[in-house]
């Protein structure tokens, strides 16, 4: 009986793996051959709103371009800290080539809407299907066979969002790709194509799972922020062989040797179990995890000269977002 269950689970996993790249492959097969280069004029406000642009990629719990509720406090605090120095760009759904989330305009949208609805339950088992789907797309992004196609699609979505926000090609304004968890790999993949159009690309990885993606060759600097009790980023170290030390000429190891990757450990935050990077409940020592996380994200940008140092005036926490109270 147990053997049958194990075999059934393995077959199911294999089926999911086999079907994972099909969306990317069918998307590319439907594209026209790249022909004429066009000028990428900004489509947003006439005046540039800032000199640093931060593009946020959600973690694997996301079902659409709107950040999941647990991530909103982080983004609100980050936006408050950045002020006018930087533009925070959201809205890219990182786990599909189709530029929209799982809950709209696709086959099976109804299923994903139900999973999203169940995500807020106390013991969300079925909504792990969302995480599983997104993890498979992270694998697609990291795979050398599909990554160039998948990452091109994501880069085009990011590029469109930047231009809609007012980014001007040729301005030299730096773009910081901020990836949480699986979103970090998507950021690295997109970096190759963004740098190709002259964008100075930096990257912040928050508990990110990264492969040795060629995009690392074009990132000016990557800051990897990790909680001391977060073990999930080590998954990338294990499952992606090109990250192993004896592949010295891999993109990851070369970037590390050149000093373009900095690892920064912060508080005792976990990846998914409380207290996480996104928790708002003060700990015994008074430290609020999400504030510690925001500081860790902003400090490297200040040191690099991408933004100015600014502190929130005391007592001026941003308005909490509507939604279930934070239990973490």
């Amino acid at each position: 009986m147990i053997a049958q269950v194990v075999v059934g689970v393995l077959v199911l996993i294999l089926l999911l793996l086999i079907t994972a790249p099909l969306e990317t492959l069918t998307w590319w097969a439907a594209q026209e051959e790249p022909r004429t280069r066009v000028n990428a004029a900004p489509t947003g406000p006439k005046e540039s709103q800032g000199s640093c642009w931060i593009v946020y990629m959600s973690g694997i719990g996301a079902v659409s371009g709107s950040s999941p509720k647990p991530e909103k406090p982080l983004l609100e605090r980050l936006r408050a800290r950045l002020g006018d120095d930087a533009v925070l760009v959201e809205g890219v759904y990182p786990y599909s080539v189709l530029d929209h989330g799982l809950t709209e305009n696709r086959d099976g949208s109804w299923f994903w809407r139900q999973m999203e609805r169940l995500q807020n339950r106390r013991f969300p088992v079925l909504p792990w299907a969302i995480n599983a789907y997104n993890i498979l797309q992270v694998l697609v992004s990291a795979d050398r066979r599909y990554g160039p196609m998948f990452n091109l699609a994501l880069a085009s979505h990011v590029w469109r969002q930047l231009r809609e926000a007012g980014y001007r090609q040729g301005s030299g304004d730096p773009v910081v790709l901020l990836g949480w968890s699986g979103g970090a790999q998507i950021c690295v993949g997109a970096a190759w194509y963004l740098a190709d159009v002259g964008v100075p690309v930096y990257m912040l990885s928050l508990g990110g799972v990264l492969s040795s993606d060629p995009g690392l060759d074009r990132i000016k600097h990557l800051w990897h922020i990790q909680g001391t009790r977060d073990r999930v980023p080590y998954v990338g170290q294990i499952v992606f062989p090109a990250r192993w030390p004896w592949f010295a000429e891999s993109s990851f190891n070369r970037a590390r040797r050149e000093g373009r990757i900095t690892r920064h450990e912060i508080g005792p935050w976990r990846h998914a179990k409380s207290p996480t990077y996104l928790s708002r409940r003060p700990q015994e020592d008074g430290l609020v995890p999400v504030d510690d996380t925001v500081n860790a994200l902003v400090d490297p940008l200040v040191r690099e000269g991408l933004i100015q140092r600014r502190e929130l005036p005391s007592g001026s926490d941003p308005e909490p977002s509507e939604g279930p109270s934070d239990q973490t």
């Binding site: 022909r35 004429t36 990428a40 160039p148 190709d196």
Partner: peptide, 11 residues
Amino acid sequence: MDIEGILEMEG
């Protein structure tokens, strides 16, 4: 990945 400016191309 070797096509320069592919992000800006029509198609």
